[in-house]
Design a protein around this nucleic acid. Sequence first.
DNA 1: ACCCGATCCTAGCACCGCTAGACAATCGAG
DNA 2: CTCGATTGTCTAGCGGTGCTAGGATCGGGT
Lengths: 192, 192
Amino acid sequence: MSVKERKERERAERERLIVATARELAEQQGWDAVTTRRLAERIEYSQPVLYSHFRGKREIIGAVALQGAAEMAVAVRAATAAAEGPRARVTALARGYLDFAERNPAVYDALFRLDGGLAYAREDTPEPLKDAFAALLECLGEVAGDGVHPGLFTEVFWASLHGIATLTRAGRLPPEEAERRVELLVDRLAVL
Amino acid sequence: MSVKERKERERAERERLIVATARELAEQQGWDAVTTRRLAERIEYSQPVLYSHFRGKREIIGAVALQGAAEMAVAVRAATAAAEGPRARVTALARGYLDFAERNPAVYDALFRLDGGLAYAREDTPEPLKDAFAALLECLGEVAGDGVHPGLFTEVFWASLHGIATLTRAGRLPPEEAERRVELLVDRLAVL
DNA sequence: ACCCGATCCTAGCACCGCTAGACAATCGAG
DNA sequence: CTCGATTGTCTAGCGGTGCTAGGATCGGGT
């Protein structure tokens, strides 16, 4: 039976390699450069091997997204944990979120811009996605204000951050005023 | 000389046809379905004709975006003009914006999600884009609040709307609470 | 009536995501 | 230890993509 186990280990290892390589390639040259041919070449296997692990390119994007969601949750919690008081926490969250988006553009795209075949905002949403939202909720819930549903408030705050992140990176917003935009958003949206 | 003029007219007419057809196709089946072959077939010319009008697919997207920007400016101004008082105006703007995004998803994508090769937020930004931003500014400038730069406020409000629009359409936000999200955003961001 | 330039199309390039079918390596039974 | 079956991987190819080179054809000016 140990042979089978070894093969399963090796197979799992190769799957990790595929996801890591896809992510690396996307981070280096953008998702357009992540083709099944290039990806196969980098992991030193032929194309069809990819399809024995994933249904297609979309699922590979989804796998990167899941990994990214877990990391984003960690990043957000780390940022907020280091801050004292509601206001500082929310500011830290906003900065942490935008920072993550800027430093991991490919992962951010996999999560929120591309189609990774994942279900969002539903019962069958994968756990890492739920947890990433929960990480936002933990901090933002306490500044939603009276009579405002914490979940709804978190959605709006998150959407605002997402808008800033995407428009900035697409060159639709000048990057110079980034910090002032964060301040304005926190000042106005959060009830302190 | 009249022959030359006629040819130029026909050429301009064909260019309009290309843009209109691309937009129609994108609105019907999404931008992925807008291939140069399908587009060429629909306008009843061969592929290379497209390249005598545009450098490539990207420029065609850009042309649709420019058209869409002009329409969005009109839509936003129409929505705000019908409202009395700052609060009603801002609410109308938010609803009008999201409504435009929902009813013209392909145009919205061309404007803010895809790469149409256009310059944003710069001196050489095409006039329709500047004017669309101006349309937002006209209404939002009056609720920016003291000491807050109207342009910066408009950017943040716009980014928030953009975030809601994109996340909702990508299935990242449940569509049911759309109206309550708008109310929350207006209540908090605008200084009334 | 003829030539010549503008205009348009056919055919093709290199690449894409994805898959069928041939081949080799490995395992279990006799 | 050998032999068939199973598993795993690869080569080759399908239909599609954006884009372009080069030849045919059409129409205006002389």
